[in-house]
Computed example of a mutant assay.
Amino acid sequence: MEFENTIRKIIEKECEDYFLGVADLSSAEDGILKQYESFFDEYPRAISIGITLPYKNTDELIGKNTKVYNEINQQLNSITVHLSSLLQQEGYKTLSVPKTEKLDDGSFISLHKLAANLANLGEIEKNGLLVTPEVGTRVNWGTILTDAPIEAANQ
């Protein structure tokens, strides 16, 4: 709980409207475990951080106003790098997962969506989008894989 408070303080320096969860990656479905098994052996948990996209003109935001979209991605990068450094200073292994532009052909679930789903932050729909109860799909996700013994939402 103390570490979660530290994480929240770091995130809140960057943004106000966010999601935070921790996932035990071993609880992923077998097919997904096979896709990522080498990662999950080394990093059994994930910290999932989501920053809510602005409500006004969100559809236009992604297509036309990449400045705001890029600023949110920079916030996520700043947060995940800071948290990764903090965990590494404590002696834990971490891997900050970079944002990807596109998924291949839809048969691949991104680590960001998987971690957020396993941390009980949203559900992955048939179309591959992660939907949160609060704001739907209007969230950009950042993920840190780690071996730190932090309590996961799905334990």
Rank of each mutant, 00 (worst) to 15 (best):
F39G: 04
I7M: 07
L129H: 05
L114P: 02
A148I: 03
Y69G: 07
E12M: 06
G91F: 10
G50K: 02
V135D: 06
P54A: 07
I10A: 08
F108W: 02
T94M: 05
E42F: 00
N154V: 09
H82K: 14
S26T: 15
P98N: 01
H112N: 01
G106Y: 15
E12L: 04
I124R: 09
E151T: 14
T143E: 03
F108R: 00
N70H: 12
T80L: 08
L130T: 00
H112M: 01
N77T: 08
I62V: 14
T58I: 15
Q155E: 10
I51D: 05
N70T: 04
D30S: 11
E134Q: 06
T58N: 06
Y18T: 11
G136S: 01
L61T: 13
K9E: 10
I150T: 09
T94I: 01
E2H: 11
L86T: 12
E4Y: 11
I144C: 07
R45H: 13
L121C: 04
F3K: 14
P44L: 09
L129K: 12
T52Q: 04
I150E: 12
E125T: 01
E90T: 09
Y18M: 10
R45C: 07
Y18A: 10
T6C: 09
K126W: 03
E71P: 01
V81M: 06
Q75S: 12
D104G: 11
P98S: 01
P133V: 04
E125L: 04
N70R: 12
I47G: 12
L61F: 13
L111N: 02
V131C: 01
H112K: 00
A119D: 07
I150L: 07
P149M: 08
E134P: 02
Y55A: 14
E90V: 03
E2I: 15
Y18H: 13
V81Q: 10
G31L: 03
